[in-house]
Design a protein around this nucleic acid. Structure first.
Length: 838
RNA sequence: GGGCUGGUGGCGGAAUUGGUAGACGCGUCAGACUUAAAAUCUGAUGAUCGCAAGAUCGUGGGGGUUCGAGUCCCCCCCUGCCCACCA
């Protein structure tokens, strides 16, 4: 019996696969059975692969190998999302060009990913920073521009004083920069914007029918944030001005006791009375100076100022005061609200603070204590009195529309997308600014517009990109008039390249189009997309938006890019702290007493926690080390065995030992056995069929952990046999192959086969065989399990009942008892209800 | 504050529509092999009581529905994630 050398097996098999071009995908699927399985491509960071990366890649690899063995043409590509801040920041610090850093990191990532034996077609590898790729990112931008979906705007943007760049709302968390945690400031800058809001209704509607995790669908829904309500126009008293407000509660219009404009609202200074001017200006100044953190703090006291002006409620002609306050946001609705303090918690707090009146219009609550926001009967509301909230809404909207003072209106929380960054390491925006002609898109023939070489990458600090310093690049001629012009110096955000990469994989070397139409029709859409839940909103929403634009242009044939989506959970790790709070590495810990881990050197007891891996917590696992110790197959199987695919779960290096033992046992067994044409015992045949069925279903359901468990149970039995027939051996090798491809191909070839398992056919389940199985059934008396009896899988209800009543133990227990009822659960149990005889 | 998750042995986790809780693996203990250790193999392993057969209790806590609840209903507690004045 020899010991498996997994390192050698990995190397040998990977070489054979490569020489045989085993993973090469044809230009088009062979039939309509196609399977496009996509991993979210990584950002190639300097740290190398995290143990979390291969979790998703292994799952997609299992699926792809499984589908291929089931006769599908598969597309399974990998590439690099390589633009981004870390490489640029590294360049600023060291002077090393981002292209060099990026290339080095990509080479390392590719080496690591290849070492796991993933069945990627590496001929389709893409890199978002290569001009051949970003040519088409720029090309799509031009299409967006031509459709009027890209526009310039001077907007108060989120400015990170540390990164010296603007950030999208989505990159700001809690008022701080997503990357460096610096508090955000406001800065007015000219920006390129993408009109994603134009697609808000479709981005919402088309979520229906996607096979995505429910929580992700919900997050997208909330992010788009549809709310249905009405716009109502109020005249300003003693003035020609009018204010339109948006409300989701038109039913409460009779309860409006004041109005609030956002401090930045354009009408504020026009309507403010001279007496109030000073107070209003002071408040505006104060609001502008506030940081986002302060403004977003919902717990803080309400603030505001009275303008001196009054608005006329169009339904009852009452005059109500107009205030300004920063709890009303410029960017949402119309930037103005009618305040109904009796039935809105924010208005209630504001009215209490400034002693504004309340009018109850919906009964059911106690408005002397708090705002009442639930349903109830309308009161004090003229023609709405007596209705419930929903009916009142409908009736009010009809009234508003009939009298031309308002209309039904749907608004969205979604904002347009700030699509420019004042950065070097991104796709140049293919636009020139001509002195005569203004904004001129670059002709498509001039793409790609390459990034110029640079030596210094510091941001200008004024808000302009470092590209502004490269005069030879910036100064150009206008494509229309030939006159003097300057290139756009903003670059695209990191999300740009990932908005369409899944299309490029289908046709990665096409020089004439971003993807050939027929090829897209054959491979699209992505059948299964796998990646982390952290992209549940941003990347997935942006990519859907671009896809819909391309769909409208007739360039892709489906409305949605990703038919099915699954997230892998995060891989965490145990960390151990002593009573002083210091972390200790795994090697220093004694686990003798499983309930009380302590330090090996006699130090005190430790408390364990499951946390994210980080150097400071001394719990980082390096995939390269694991791989060289246990081999690729053990790594793959362990990550799949740890727990449910989508749950976050802690890495436990002890756990991989168990998997490694499982694989070693298989190797030792396979080296030892004789493969002949003997007949195997029926119990083993039954178990084999059961296992095939279970593994097949589990792969389809992403239950990889239980699939491995089923194969362990099978092998615990199979491993006892020293002579097996070809079918038994082949079936086991085939179902294990997607999980442990190196070991199984090695053993397959050792057994004299010239083929690769990937080209073999997935084993079929013999349903007849499963009927022969002997099952153990529970017998309950009055709800408690009293005995277990054997029945065949083909047993009828009558046979089950008979078997239960024939049990000696049950007979004894039923002596002197009267049976009231017998419940038979098919193939599971018999439940007897009995009570003592009188 | 809102939304979404999840809470099962010492640990990771199993458990179709309510139907035998703890599969599989780790760890631990005992035994075999060994001069010894490692590796490997065999067995035991939810808790409590008991020599034993067995009994009782057990899926965050408390109630309920049911012949039967980890699973369904009501109340409460805790974890993690996301969003936070969206009218």
């Amino acid at each position: 019996m020899s010991i498996a050398n997994f390192k050698e097996i990995d190397a040998r098999q990977q070489k054979r696969w490569q020489e045989a071009k085993l993973f090469k995908t044809d230009a088009l699927p062979k039939s309509n059975k196609k399977f496009y399985c996509l991993d979210m491509f990584p950002y190639p960071s300097g740290q190398g692969l995290h143990v979390g990366h291969p979790e998703g890649y292994t799952a997609s690899d299992i699926l792809v190998r499984f589908k291929r063995m089931n006769g599908y043409s598969v597309l399974h590509p990998m590439g690099w999302d390589a633009f981004g801040l870390p490489a640029e920041n590294y360049a600023i610090a060291t002077g090393v060009h981002p292209a060099i850093t990026t290339q080095k990191n990509i080479d390392n990532f590719r080496r690591q990913i290849k070492s796991f034996g993933m069945a990627y077609d590496w001929d389709r590898e893409i890199n978002t920073t290569s001009p051949e790729y970003y040519k088409w990112t720029q090309w799509i931008f031009l299409q967006l521009y031509k459709k009027g979906l890209a526009y310039q705007s001077t907007v108060p943007i989120n400015w990170c004083p540390s990164c010296k760049t603007g950030l999208a709302n989505e990159e700001v968390f809690g008022g701080r920069c997503e990357r460096c945690q610096t508090p955000i400031e406001k800065k007015n800058l000219r920006q390129w914007m993408l009109k994603i809001t134009a697609y808000a209704p479709r981005l919402l509607e088309d979520l229906e029918g996607l096979d995505w995790p429910a929580s992700t669908l919900l997050m997208q829904k909330n992010w788009i944030g549809q709310s249905n309500g009405a716009e109502v126009t109020f005249k300003v008293a003693n003035s020609n001005e009018q204010v339109t407000v948006f409300t989701t509660r038109p039913d409460t219009l009779f309860g409006a006791t004041y109005m609030v404009l956002a401090p930045e609202h354009e009408l504020v200074l026009k309507i403010t009375t001279p007496e109030q001017k000073e107070a209003v200006l002071a408040y505006q100044k104060q609001a502008a100076a506030k940081s986002d953190i302060e403004r977003a703090d919902a717990e803080k006291e309400k603030t505001g100022a009275f303008t001196g002006a009054y608005a006329i409620n169009p339904v009852n002609n009452k005059q109500i005061p107009i205030w300004i306050a920063d709890y009303v946001l410029t960017g949402y609705g119309t930037g103005a609200i009618m305040a109904v303090p009796a039935h809105d918690t924010r208005d209630y707090a504001f009215a209490r603070k400034f002693n504004l009146p309340l009018i109850e219009v919906i009964s059911g609550g106690d408005i002397s204590k708090e705002a009442y926001t639930e349903d109830g009967k309308l009161v004090n509301s003229g023609f709405l009195d007596g209705l419930n909230v929903n009916d009142a809404k409908a009736k009010m909207i009809k009234f508003l529309e009939d009298n031309h003072i308002g209309k039904a209106k749907t608004t969205y929380r979604l904002r347009d997308w700030v699509f420019s960054r004042q950065r070097y390491w991104g796709e140049p925006i293919p636009i020139v600014h001509c002195e005569k002609c203004g904004v001129v898109p670059l002709p498509e023939s001039e793409l790609p517009l390459r990034l110029p070489d640079m030596e210094k990458f510091e941001p200008s600090g004024t808000g302009e990109s470092p590209l502004a310093n490269v005069e030879s690049w910036v100064n150009t001629t206008c494509p229309i008039c030939g006159g003097k012009a300057k290139r756009e110096t903003n670059t695209m955000p990191q999300w740009a390249g990932s908005c369409w990469y899944y299309l490029r994989y289908m046709d990665p070397h096409n020089n004439n189009a971003f993807v050939d139409k027929d090829i897209e029709k054959a491979w699209g859409p992505v059948d299964c997309y796998i990646g982390g839940a952290e992209h549940a909103v941003l990347h997935l929403l942006y990519a859907r938006f671009w896809h819909k634009v391309l769909y409208d242009l007739g360039l892709v044939h489906t409305k949605e890019p990703f038919a099915k989506l699954r997230h892998q959970g995060m891989i965490l790790a145990f960390s151990y702290r002593d009573k002083n709070g210091s972390y200790h590495p795994y090697e220093d810990i004694d686990f003798k007493d499983p309930k009380n881990p302590c330090l090996k050197d006699g130090g005190g007891a430790l408390t364990s926690m499951v946390e994210k891996m980080s150097k400071s917590k001394k719990n980082v696992i390096n995939p390269d080390e694991i791989l060289s110790e246990y081999g690729a197959d053990a790594f793959r199987c362990y990550e799949m065995f740890m727990g449910p695919f989508d749950a976050s779960k802690p890495w436990d290096t002890k756990g991989i030992e168990g998997i490694s033992r499982f694989l070693k046992r298989i190797f030792a067994w396979a080296e030892d056995i004789k493969i002949t044409d003997i007949k195997m015992p029926q119990e083993l045949e039954i178990l084999k069929n059961k296992t095939i069925k279970k593994v097949t279903e589990d792969i389809e359901n992403f239950s990889f952990n239980t699939a491995i468990s089923a194969m362990m149970i099978f092998f615990n039995e199979l491993g006892k046999y020293k002579e097996v027939n070809q079918d038994m051996f082949a079936s086991f090798m085939k179902i294990l192959h997607p999980f442990a491809p190196h070991l199984t191909d090695e053993l397959w070839q050792q057994a004299g086969n010239k083929t690769f398992l990937l080209n073999e056919t997935w084993p079929k389940v013999n349903a007849e065989m499963l009927k022969e199985e002997q099952l153990e059934m529970g017998v309950q008396i009055n709800g408690k399990i009293k005995d277990r009896v054997k029945i065949p899988a083909s047993a009828t209800k009558e046979m089950q009942q008979e078997a239960a009543l024939n049990s000696a133990k049950i007979k004894t227990l039923l002596e002197g008892q009267e049976i009231i009822k017998i419940i038979v659960v098919p193939l599971k149990m018999v439940s007897i209800v009995a009570k003592p005889k009188k």
